[in-house]
């Protein structure tokens, strides 16, 4: 399993559009991609659950990927967070 931690910088947090794009991104990989915030953890591909985490600016989240393509997945996801959130 691979993981990284990230502090949300976007003013609105993980709001609708980036959440949608993030879910789309996560679906590209066969690995199971999860996001955890404050003890609650959901699959990245679950758009509504992801939004319901309510990750705001300044919140620390942990992203994990587990599966065959976990190396690529985690690298791409980290890139996505850095660019969009």
């Amino acid at each position: 399993m691979k993981s990284f931690e990230y502090t949300i910088k976007d003013e609105l947090g993980i709001h609708a559009r980036p959440a949608g794009l993030l879910a789309k991104e996560a679906k590209k990989y066969s690995s199971v991609c999860m996001i955890e915030k404050g003890g609650k953890s959901v699959k990245l591909s679950q758009l509504m659950m992801l939004m319901s985490l309510g990750a705001k600016q300044g919140d620390l989240v942990k992203v994990t990927a587990e599966g065959e393509d976990e190396d690529t997945a985690i690298a791409e996801l980290e890139k996505f967070f850095n660019e969009n959130l």
Partner: peptide, 16 residues
């Protein structure tokens, strides 16, 4: 226009 794209993604949501 992005709002309609978000709606499309929501409609693909597996939990829902």
């Amino acid at each position: 226009a992005a709002i309609f794209e978000v709606h499309q993604m929501m409609l693909e949501d597996e939990d829902y």
